[in-house]
């Protein structure tokens, strides 16, 4: 086993058995986490490659390149690993969470506005604690907004600063 070089993008090993870098998640583990957590179809991520840069930051990429690759970015940030509870990114949840069937909390319009502004909420929820996919209804369908951390009967908004917004209330 070698140590993780946080300065570059390395492709994840396909499975834990092929792991060469200590502590690195495998492609199978990353996909299983997403599919299990949100109840997605097992083939949702077929064809994508997964990369680590930094300590535990996983990226999802629709193409493939020789690893390690000397780039500023490959695809989009997807999941934070190397910590006790893995954490999906807001942008990945928006991109891939539309079909989620588990660990989804749907907010009413006022709650949704406050969540997007970064406020913590106390909505009714009798499911698991941990990272939830936070959604609301827009244009007739449910749509993911981002990620919330549900602990101690509170839903903490973990929408990153650059994606928060205070929307005007509209009639």
């Amino acid at each position: 086993m070698t140590d993780n070089d946080g300065q570059r993008f390395d492709r994840l090993p396909a499975t834990a058995a092929e792991r060469e870098v200590a502590g690195r998640a495998s492609r199978a583990e990353v996909i299983d986490w997403w599919v299990d957590r949100f109840g997605l179809d097992a083939d949702t991520f077929d064809g994508y490659t997964f990369w680590e840069k930094g300590a535990g930051k996983i990226w999802i990429f629709a193409a493939d390149l020789p690893s390690p690759v000397d780039c500023e970015g490959v695809g989009m940030t997807f999941l934070r690993t190397r910590q006790e509870h893995w954490k999906p990114t807001t942008n990945a949840v928006q991109r891939f969470g539309g079909a989620a069937t588990r660990n989804v909390i749907e907010l009413d319009p006022d709650e949704a506005r406050r969540f997007l502004a970064g406020e913590d909420l106390t909505p009714a929820w009798d499911g698991d604690w941990g990272y939830l996919l936070v959604a609301h209804r827009i244009a007739g369908e449910r749509e993911p907004i981002g990620v919330g951390l549900y602990v101690h009967d509170e839903l903490r908004s973990v929408v990153p600063k650059g994606r928060r917004a205070s929307l005007p209330t509209r009639e």
Partner: peptide, 13 residues
């Protein structure tokens, strides 16, 4: 690119 959900991009400088 992240906000718009682009996954097929490699960014180079």
């Amino acid at each position: 690119a992240e906000r718009l959900g682009v996954t097929n991009i490699a960014v180079t400088n």
